[in-house]
Every structure is written in C-alpha cells, then in structure tokens.
Design a protein around this nucleic acid. Structure first.
Lengths: 244, 244
DNA sequence: CGTCCTCTTGATTCCCTTCAATATGAGTGG
DNA sequence: CCACTCATATTGAAGGGAATCAAGAGGACG
C-alpha cells in the first residue's frame, strides 16, 4: 500500500517502481500529531521537508492585531517547498488542523532523492508549481471575487484536490474537517458572514456543509457560481463537472 | 556592467565570476517591448523563462466578469519560475507595464546552467522561494489588512524590492510607474478608493505618490501603518527602517 | 451535567463600491 | 503652436456588503 504522497506524485509524473520504493522509504519516518499543533513557527529556522500523509494542516500568519490569515491548506499527500532549507527563517507557521501523520525528509535525503531520480524531481517541481498557482488563485479570490464566489471557489478547489489524492471513487460528499472559524481565517472573512454565505449556498441548492463534510448537490451550479476554472490545478484528469 | 538579473541573484548567493559570466551570456538575447504588451497569455503553452532586465511587468488574471486581478509585479531582475516548462499551460498572463527589456532563457539553456553551477541554482531557488513568500504576503494583505494598511504594505514591499535590486544609494524616492487603476487591480480595490487612501496617507505625512514616483516621507510611520515585516522578503540586508 | 466550542440568527454600524461629474495631463494632428 | 482626444486623477453622493456586537442554540467532552 503506497501512501498519499506517492499517490499524489504518481499523478504528476510517470514514476518507476524504484521511485515509488524510494518515496515510500523516505517517508517511513512519520510522527503523529494531535490537532492544532504547530509543526514549525514563523521565525524558526527551516528544518526538514514536511509531508502530510494523513490529516489536514495549514500554513498561516498572525498579524499584529491578533487576527490570523491562513495562506494554504495542506491535504494528505501535500508537502512543503523542497528547497525550504535555503531560507534563513520561516516567514509563516504551519499547524495541524486535525490529527495528522507527518513524515519528514531531511535535507540530505531530499537532495539524494533529487539526484537519483529526475522523475521524482519533476513530480516535486510540478507539485510546487501547482502550489504556487493555488496561491495565485487565492489572491484572485480575495481580490476580485464576492464572498459567495469565494466560498464556492474554495470548496471546488478542496473537492478537486481531495479527489486527486484520495484515489477514491468519485463521490459528491467529501470530508471537510474545518470549522467555519477556520474557513473565515482562510477566506479573509468574519465567521458570522461565512455562516450566512454557506446558508445561501445551501438555499441555492448547490452545496451543503454539515457534520464536518461537504456535499456538492449541484456540481455544475457550484462551478458556475464559483467561476471555477480548474486549469490552475494543472490536472489533466476528469473535471468536477464531467464526473457527473 | 552587469544587469539587474545578475545584481539580484548576487544578493541571494555567493556567485563566482564565472557564474556572473554565465548569467550575462544567458541573458544576452533580449527583446524590447512597449508598455501593455502581453508576453504570454493564460492558456498558452509555457515557453522560455522570462527575465525582466529593465522596466516593469505583472502577472494577472482576467475573471469572467471582466475584472482583473494582478497577482505580482515583476521588477527589473525578476524572472518567472525556472521550471515553468513542466506545466501544460499557463494559468495566468504576463504583461509589460512599462517599456521593458526582456531576456528569455530557453529550457535547455536553463537546465545547462543549473547543471553547471549549483550556486546559480541556489540563487534561483532562493528567488523563487521569495516570490512564493511574497504571494503569501499578498494573501495576508488582501485577507486581513485594511485598505490603508494594504496600500502602505505594498509600497513598503515595492520600495524594499527596488532598493534590493537597483543597487542605487538609498533614497526616499523611487520611481513607481503604475497608475492608480493598476494599483487597484493589484490590491483588489476600486480605483476611486485607492485614490482616497493615497490621499489619507499623504495627509498622514507618511508617503506621497505623484508624477509616477513614490516618496516616503516618514519611513518608520509607513512601516508602522503597514504592519510591515520585511522578513518575508528574506533579505539579510539593511531594513527600510534602519536606512534612515 | 456543566463547560466550552461551534454554529446560528438578528440588529447596527461602517468601509468600500458604484455612479457621476470635473479636472488634469499627455499625446496627436491640424 | 494650439485644438482635440483620451487616459488618468480627483472629489462628491448614495447605496450595499460585510464587520461588529450581541444573544441563544446545539453538540462534544471530561
């Protein structure tokens, strides 16, 4: 059984069997963390590369006023920048959202892996470019999308990302282990308003959030209100709209 | 005389003389573009790596509604992702803001360069990580900063970035060849409101924008209203606050 | 069973957008 | 050199979307 990391990278490059073995070996050393535990904090010296094998995490930054902004979600299979060690210190923190299994890849191990397999390197670079594209998509959302569109867009993103990694059969329902307060911190809105927007989306019949899960009742409609163009996720796989 | 690209990378890694020569040679092939000219468009197949030698450019995305969101500014010395060629298609466009001299580095040339000099590779990766950090900082700005803070923060960022590359003597005034409409597209605000915020900042005595130039009249004050922490730019150089 | 966190809904306030009009300035052609 | 045009900048007025304040309900957990 390969892990989420391998599943994700397999979708980004043609990995050989030995690559898979290398990746599995490199992520053998895993630690389990409870929810809401910082893996690394702003100002810390960057350490090894983190790989999320199960559970959710997020990158965030606290402002002087005390408010928080989440800059990205890390889902199973996601890892942080492969060359993070180049920098002097972290400019943001990383925290688990749920219980999570985190593997760490030391810098020498990472460099060894990049040296040995160009395919792994290619997959990791592709992953990084997708992460960047996602950051840009968030900027677009925050800058020019209405709150309805913004929430819908994030749900589309998370849905597609989860489908891409889970390898599970397409389902209209995915687990969404985030509180509305967390969504607020991710979307730059107030928790109260997030709640109202979710309600409007439910009343519009496109999606529902309940019991920590997201159910997409009208995929086409959701994609439409979100103005979602999944090209930025650079997946040449089935699209959310064509699954159904 | 070395170009802006070399000057920027020199600040990110200890380049040998041969590295400088390599970089200069790789950017010999430059083209001149007028203002407001697309270098590459969303949906296009990624081509060579673009390097801005002079002038300004920006990455942007057009939404279905027709509004535009700029996701980053490219100043002299900046380049786009070194591995951009991995992706199938561009998820955003790049356009010149002013007249600009753009060098292109073909994919083979880039790979050759990375193979030959680990120092150049290191500098390029550092540049990319800084770009990513800047994207995160923009997300934080859009999500959790007030319009005053947001404008002030962008001005701090641009000022520090310009100082980092220009190599010029520190000055309270830098060229800022962007219209208020462009700032609006970058900051996710309306042009009208941008105008009012700029006025308030002028009245507060911290900065002035006029005749396409930015004058910082009170650096400490500006940094303060912006809540600017330049750590994210990962410069171990003099800070905007300590220059004065 | 009490406590705390999350969710939900209402009321009020205000920041920012939109609409509108005018001013300023650069570039163009007569 | 001066009208003309168009982009940009500036300011006012009005409306709306989202934050804030506030209170209650539901649910998880020790």
């Amino acid at each position: 059984m390969v892990n989420a990391f391998v599943r994700k990278l397999s979708g980004l490059a043609d990995l050989a069997e030995e690559d898979v073995a290398t990746l599995v070996a490199s992520t053998r050393q895993t630690r389990h963390f409870p929810a809401r535990r910082d893996l690394i904090r702003e100002g810390d010296r960057p350490g090894p590369v983190f790989v999320v094998l199960s559970g959710w995490a997020c990158r965030y930054k606290i402002l002087p006023s005390g408010t928080r902004q989440i800059t990205s979600f890390m889902l199973p299979g996601d890892s942080c920048d492969l060359h993070i060690a180049i920098l002097d210190e972290m400019d943001h923190s990383i925290q688990t959202i749920t219980k999570a299994a985190i593997a760490t890849i030391s810098r020498p191990a990472m460099e060894d892996m990049l040296d040995r397999s160009p395919r792994i390197g290619r997959a990791l670079y592709a992953a990084q470019l997708i992460d960047e594209a996602t950051l840009r998509a968030w900027i677009v959302s925050m800058g020019r999308r209405s709150s309805m569109e913004r929430v819908a867009h994030l749900m589309c993103e998370l849905y597609v990302r989860l489908q891409g990694v889970a390898g599970a059969s397409p389902s209209s329902t995915v687990e969404l282990p985030v509180s509305q307060l967390l969504l607020a911190d991710a979307l730059g809105m107030s928790p109260v308003h997030i709640n109202r927007v979710i309600r409007r989306l439910r009343e519009a019949g496109v999606m529902e959030i309940s019991r920590r899960s997201l159910r997409i009742t009208d995929p086409v409609g959701l994609v439409h209100v979100a103005g979602f163009d999944e090209n930025y996720l650079h997946r040449r796989l089935k699209t959310i709209a064509t699954i159904y």
